[in-house]
Design a protein around this nucleic acid. Sequence first.
DNA 1: ATGAAAGCGCTAACAT
DNA 2: ATGTTAGCGCTTTCAT
Lengths: 345, 345
Amino acid sequence: MPKAYSNSTLSDVAREANVSVSTASRVLNGLAEKYRISRSTAQLVRESADKLGFRPSQVARSLRLKRTGLLGIVVPDLSNPFFSSIARAVTVSAEAEGFSAILADSGGAVGKEKTLIDQLTTRSVEGLIVCPVGLNFEHLETVHQQGMPLVVVDRCKANSSMVQVTSDHIAGTRQAMKLLLGNGHRHIGVLQGIAGTLPCDQRLQGVQEALTEVGARLDSAMIAGDQFTYESGYTSARKLLTTNPQITALFAMSTPNAFGAYQAAIELGLRVPDDLSLICFDDVAFADFMQVPLTTVSQDVPELGRLAASLVTQQLVHGKVPAQKTHTIPVTLLTRASVGKTSPS
Amino acid sequence: MPKAYSNSTLSDVAREANVSVSTASRVLNGLAEKYRISRSTAQLVRESADKLGFRPSQVARSLRLKRTGLLGIVVPDLSNPFFSSIARAVTVSAEAEGFSAILADSGGAVGKEKTLIDQLTTRSVEGLIVCPVGLNFEHLETVHQQGMPLVVVDRCKANSSMVQVTSDHIAGTRQAMKLLLGNGHRHIGVLQGIAGTLPCDQRLQGVQEALTEVGARLDSAMIAGDQFTYESGYTSARKLLTTNPQITALFAMSTPNAFGAYQAAIELGLRVPDDLSLICFDDVAFADFMQVPLTTVSQDVPELGRLAASLVTQQLVHGKVPAQKTHTIPVTLLTRASVGKTSPS
DNA sequence: ATGAAAGCGCTAACAT
DNA sequence: ATGTTAGCGCTTTCAT
């Protein structure tokens, strides 16, 4: 019975089979044909390898071949379903192409993100998929310019030469706004995430565009928030709703933002959707079982990850440099119960 | 301005500094003192390294030192918040101890799990944290017996010599059952997950024990289900509720199970908690915003991951072999709204 | 206080 | 059809 995991090396196998290491290497790498190695020798080598439970050292191969088959993936928070879903898609896609992925969690800190990417390059990952914190891209640009295949997901950078994958924030937001506006809402508050990040900026732009089309404009007093978190949603919704009592609808940039807003609404005695409509970007699991099922703009999260992974593996295995820099994934409006019509006044 | 990422090697640095590679290596590894290398030489080496943007190759180091600083983590489904939360805790803890983690998703297939672990060992990971599918442990036992530091999380194996970390399923279930029984429920249906896995078996045992204490017993006709999924919960709840109309409460083994059950209840015209009480193991994000906030037995998921990671890193960096084989993490009953009293009959 | 050289396990160019 | 050998980039023993 061969040991399943051993520390025997190629030279052990060669010795056992009475052949040279090159012959052993060739056979074990399926190059027997090409080198016209006799069937009997090949067979012998394979048996020896089997007997010794030979496992080729990827480390040694990597050093020799200068290819590690390693990808790095960094996200701001893996406990956030949005990012874990991306991480899953990346891992699975990478695996299918023969790559393994080293996972890193930046905790939303740019400094940490930088350190992690540094470590990953030091480990000779062949490609990088990163969901950046989104405010500083210098370290990403640098590593990209040095020739590292790199794909940025979600919090992209405007005007960048890096390959980027993101949802269609503008179209998604416009759909959401269209629903709100079509239902008579004219005083719409915006709960924003991290200002300056592309998802945030583009959603803001979508709001503006939609408003412009109906001859309105976005008052900066109607915008609040600074994180994609529950707390930010709660605090900013409270602020907005007390300062601007004329608000009939809230557009939240994330699900946690929306839940925070919902809580704020309850505390202020506002019923959703009767007194206040609520819509948000991102989707929740089990949204249908919520007190008020949220109407959302749902992103195709696995597709973001899948595409990002494929963009780097295609480049790695087939040398296909992505023709397009910016890849935009469509989103879907999921109409549930949290948006209502304004009462005719 | 030094290049941030380059491909210059140690010998490049040595040449630049007019010293030997050994000296360069020593200085750059902080061994200058120990080898009594002159301050000026050391300084020169550092400057050269800086100038060339030298980044030591971890793969070369790994080959030489036979230490990769790599951990493997495999889970059945990273898009499940339970597992992504574990993965996060593991990654972060590992990182803090100087390790990186390769992430792998088995998709709940034992065969895949086996292949992945095989690949990971081939990549010379120094330790393994695995949330197994939970039905077959041979491959895990094997790799463990070969001396690989390995910690099993969640779906553990009874009577194993492997190091295992899991929640206190029995105590948690008994707490849940105590609540149900205290509220007068005597006809309690059980929605189980993957039969044969330890979490499933122990929860079943907890149900039995609690029932025995009040002089009742668990009828096998009151158990249904075969996965920890929504569908399994839905199907088995429908079956149980139609076959046994006397049921007043359902104990679900997972949150998705519980949501499936909730849907089934709605369709059967049963109100929760008035007509049917519902309680489940695992917790949901935003449970408070559910139509009927679920009463749950909440696991300390991050702690499961943290402990597992620490168990392997402690062994790796300090040679501390875990004294205990089985590590049980306490759980907490979170009383919300889905459990009611039976109507006096 | 520093250097030369072996060798970790593998692949591939260059023999024969 | 198979073997010899250099070398990937690093650490460390042994010299000096």
